[in-house]
Design a protein around this nucleic acid. Structure first.
Length: 586
RNA sequence: GGAGCCGUGGUGUAGCGGUUAACAUGCCGGCCUGUCACGCCGGAGAUCGAGGGUUCAAAUCCCUUCGGCUUCGCCA
């Protein structure tokens, strides 16, 4: 009873033909004298009919069959009788009249329904992930993921990229996320680290003359989990020699377009719009702006330069900014709703939130009495305020205002339901600062990473004012999620050493950690750069899911555990001894 | 490390000081030859995440704890 077809191959073209199907019993409908079984395989469903008029043995066996039994069915494909077609099934015009039934395996009743849209405790789904993955929507996600990865491989292969694997057992890196460590048995007391990314290896591959590299790379970061963060995740990692930013943008925009097309989405307009980091922060309050809706943040610092209102005046005097969002048509918000937004603003670091309701012929606001008519006219004009609008203000340092208004912008979009399903809004964010000052560590730290090249003209600034140096880094943002990021790299030893020292790394330490890399740079290193895409996040958006767990076959819970295997778990004392590891009492 | 929400038959929910712990679905049995969320009849199934406390009485109130999800910190 080897299968001859998959379920969804059943169509009117096969009418009259004998077929053998293998699969699972999705549902059984027993009418006493006639039994219907929806047979499911990876492709989908087809209805199988058991009638005593066709075969009594098969019919009686079908009475015994239950959900999720694995069966083989042999029978003829027939057109369904007039009026019994099912338009909800691709195979709804036909059915298979079973002549023979073989139960390949029985099955216990599953703990949840094998169907879409179930609302079950996710732990249960993860514990029985093999059942969860039988559900069409999960199967769809996994299959889409496969198609996307295959497309990435073929696209890059066609353009001369080499797929090269890099070590999983490697060195711990300073900076960045917490490492997952692996104890060395052979070197007691020493540890490997799992890679947070293949960064240094891919650069070394450029020194090695590979010119174009990619890898579907697993990355590991031991940090707290979120809906879009898992301790291990997958990146499409790429690196190229002799390229600049434009080469990379062109290459990956085209790739993204083809990937989305392969997944059945609409064609997209290329090239993607570009924003500088500063623009993104000022206008959208985020370095990963969601461009599916407008709601821009408008700067009013100049309009209100001489304002008397103390809250605004002191913010401006301290070198800060006053900015606002026009919540179009939100004048009808209740006082309670506005206070609610104000509370959220405070939660995000604001000292308060001023507002103006634009009425038909008057303004309602606790602050207008502190403003001159000229200032009011100015801000209304800047915000394009019309009767029915609600204006929300932030006044503080630029970063605080960006954070607060950026949050309010997203919250307003949620409340106003501005995001329509299926929209895809890409953009590049460019000109990130290379370094930022870390108050805790009392030193500069790399915004991207320490191998990112500064803009050539900014190199002198590394000494004078490191905070002003711009990086040759870029992020690709889709619908408010960072899906990829990369940079042109440092490829000269002196610049790299300068970078190390600027972030406070002693030459001893940089020699110890990255001596091999500095040495490699001495042996003819081409200029190079690259980018990496978060495949899980990308697929999550493509599949319109709220969590990357839904596009990973075997994800972890928020406490980084696997309910199916029970990982992580205790190990035998012998294993610990071999590793020279002793578990400390709490 | 912090905050919020959740935990009641297999599953999803209701009940929120005294109930034979309810409903739906699933499951089991019976009937049924055109269903596809098949239908009809009957039945089994939970001591309410765990531990402690308050009370004459706790699923219900309090404390602790475990687990899950969301989120801040964190994630170059």
């Amino acid at each position: 009873m080897k299968r001859t077809h998959s379920a969804t191959e059943m169509n009117t073209g096969l009418i009259g033909q004998e077929v053998v199907l293998n699969g699972w019993v999705n549902t059984r409908r027993d009418h006493g004298g006639l039994i219907f079984i929806d047979l499911r395989d990876r492709s989908g469903l087809v209805q199988v009919v058991f009638s005593p008029e066709v075969d009594t043995d098969a019919f009686h066996l079908a009475e015994q069959v239950r959900s999720e039994y694995v069966v083989a069915v042999c029978g003829a494909v027939r057109e369904r009788p007039e009026g019994t077609e099912n338009p909800n099934l691709v195979t709804g015009k036909v059915e298979v009249y079973a002549r023979e039934l073989l139960v390949l395996n029985r099955a216990k009743t599953p703990p949840f329904y094998i169907e879409d849209g179930i609302e079950v405790d996710e732990v249960l789904r993860l514990k029985y992930r093999y059942l969860d993955l039988r559900r069409p929507e999960m199967k769809h996600n996994i299959m889409m993921r496969h198609r996307v990865v295959q497309k990435m491989r073929s696209y890059l292969d066609e353009r001369g990229f080499l797929e090269i694997e890099t070590p999983i057992l490697t060195n711990s890196t300073p900076e960045g996320a917490r490492d997952y460590l692996v104890p060395s048995r052979i070197h007691p007391g020493q540890f490997y680290a799992l890679p947070q990314s293949p960064q240094t290896f891919k650069q070394i591959l450029m020194v090695a003359g590979m010119e174009k590299y990619f890898q579907i790379a697993r990355c590991f970061r031991d940090e707290d989990l979120r809906a879009d963060r898992q301790p291990e995740f997958t990146q499409l990692d790429m690196e190229m020699s002799f390229v600049d930013e434009e080469d990379i943008f062109t290459l990956v925009e085209q790739m993204i377009a083809e990937i989305f097309q392969a997944a059945g989405q609409q064609e997209m307009a290329l090239p993607f719009p570009r924003l500088t980091y500063e623009e993104a922060m000022a206008k959208y309050g985020s370095d990963k702006p969601d461009l599916r809706f407008d709601l821009p943040i408008v700067d009013l610092t100049e309009v209100l330069r001489d304002v008397e209102f103390k809250v605004f005046a002191s913010a401006i005097a301290a070198g800060g900014v006053v900015r606002a969002i026009n919540a179009k048509g939100c004048a009808s918000f209740t006082r309670r709703e506005i206070d609610d937004l104000g509370r959220m603003a405070v939660d995000n670091g604001a000292k308060g939130m001023a507002w103006i309701i634009v009425g038909d012929d008057e303004l309602r606001s606790p602050i207008t009495k502190f403003l001159t008519q000229e200032q009011i006219d100015g801000l209304l004009a800047s915000l394009d305020a019309k009767p029915g609008d609600l204006l929300l203000f932030g006044a503080d340092s630029a970063p605080v205002v960006a954070r607060v208004l950026g949050f309010l912008r997203l919250e307003l979009a949620r409340r106003l339901d501005l995001v329509k399903p299926g929209q895809l809004k890409f953009c590049w964010v460019l000109d990130f600062p290379l370094l930022e000052y870390d108050e805790e560590e009392k030193r500069y730290v790399a915004v991207h990473h320490m191998f990112t090249a500064p803009r050539q003209e900014d190199i002198p600034l590394l000494d004078e004012n490191p905070g002003l140096v711009k990086a040759r880094a870029y992020d690709m943002v889709l619908n408010g999620t960072e899906i990829g990021g990369g940079s042109i790299r440092i490829y000269q030893r002196e610049v790299q050493e300068k970078m190390f020292s600027t972030i406070g790394m002693s030459s001893e330490e940089s020699q110890e950690r990255f001596g091999y890399m500095l040495e490699a740079f001495d042996y003819g290193t081409p200029p190079h750069g690259g980018i990496a895409f978060g495949i899980d996040r990308l697929i999550m958006i493509m599949a319109e899911r709220q969590s990357i767990r839904d596009v990973i076959a075997f994800p972890k819970t928020q406490s980084a555990a696997c309910p199916m295997t029970g990982a992580p778990s205790d190990v035998k004392a012998k294993q610990l001894r071999e590793l020279s590891i002793k578990i400390r009492e709490k």
